[in-house]
Design a protein around this nucleic acid. Sequence first.
DNA 1: TCTGGGGTCCTAGGACCC
DNA 2: TCTGGGGTCCTAGGACCC
Length: 417
Amino acid sequence: MFALADCNNFYASCERVFNPSLEKKAVVVLSNNDGCVIARSNEAKALNIAMGVPVYQIKDIVKKHQVAVFSTNFTLYGDMSNRVMNTLAEFVPDMEIYSIDEAFLSLDGFEHYNLEAYAEKITKTVRKNTGIPLSLGIAPTKTLAKAANKTAKKSGKFYCILNDEESITNALKKLDIEDVWGIGRRYAAFLRKHNILTAYDFTCQPESWIRKHMTVMGQRLLKELKGIPCYTLENDIPAKKNICTARSFGKMIGDVEQLQEAVASFAARCAEKLRRQKSCAAAIMVFLHTNFHRKDLPQYARSIVVPLPHATNYTPELIKYAIYGLTKIFKEGYAYKKAGVIMVEIIPSNSVQGNLFYPVADEKTKAVMDVVDDLNAKYGRDKVRILAQGYSKAWKMHQEKLSPCYSTRLSDIPHVY
DNA sequence: TCTGGGGTCCTAGGACCC
DNA sequence: TCTGGGGTCCTAGGACCC
């Protein structure tokens, strides 16, 4: 049996933990640049604020109902996530952290437990230890555990257990096809066209038909919904095959030097991510584009892959090639809205192939990066940086409604009177 | 005025190898 | 008339996840 633990309205709930005046109030959290709504409390959902809606389109609702609006505070959410995961880890022998607010728990060996009581104990303990409300879905496969979790949330309960044919069938009959894990917008529309409206309808289809139209992924989905596991718990996090840092700018940028500073900063951030997973990249991709939403302005979008002489995670070298790529694709006369850097062809740093005609980074460069990473970990991001990253940050994001880092910064710790 | 960021997997088709 | 069998690698495109 698997349990899927999923924090309810996670980002909105994080904002509430240290700000109890937000209890029972509508709370929304915005994407980077304060652009779109990416998290909503139940009260905000009840006001029909849709997921992903640009915030300027709902400003009347926000004003009328005094919705509390926050910029994303990933420092806070990341720390709260760790607290939740640490608490969950105390209850089971094995778990897979699936996302910032979700984990699959293995319930092997718990067959003779009273699962209801145990589920209740888990959710109550997480709430007590962290302040975060959590739902548990328990079932024989990961996909069914996901479905059970949805069912729990819909019923207003903190857990739902699907462990026999009757409970599974009943739940799947009430589960809309687009709410099934693995069914996105495209497949949902396709299936609806064929009058497959619920998860249960899906399980009634012939396997060959599903395989034909939805590839092997659909076939696995079908088996999982029928209680035959196709996915197991994945414990060790595999190294990333691509590493991307990209941002929409707070304002549009036409100046190549400002773009260079942005791209240098993205490359530096990617280099840090590479070093953290002990990898090197053998090529980097740089892209930029104008604001697609501004039909009144000339549009331009391009990307380029720059192969490196040898794989590296040395920040100055990655910045050099990133800027080289940028100058290749930059065109004068456009107002740019977004740029990004992606590390591709990633390999483990202990298996870098040398280049006969180009000196490979030596031990010294590795030592320098270790020191820089240590200093920045201790004293704050970019405390030591490459000059090319600049100081102006003309491209910086809007973050007007940022909450304090209550749990990670001494000066932000709440006061109690 | 204003519209996010960061990933994965699968398939088909083309080019190539012996 | 009739034209093999068994592979790999790469890319683009399409789908999905949080």
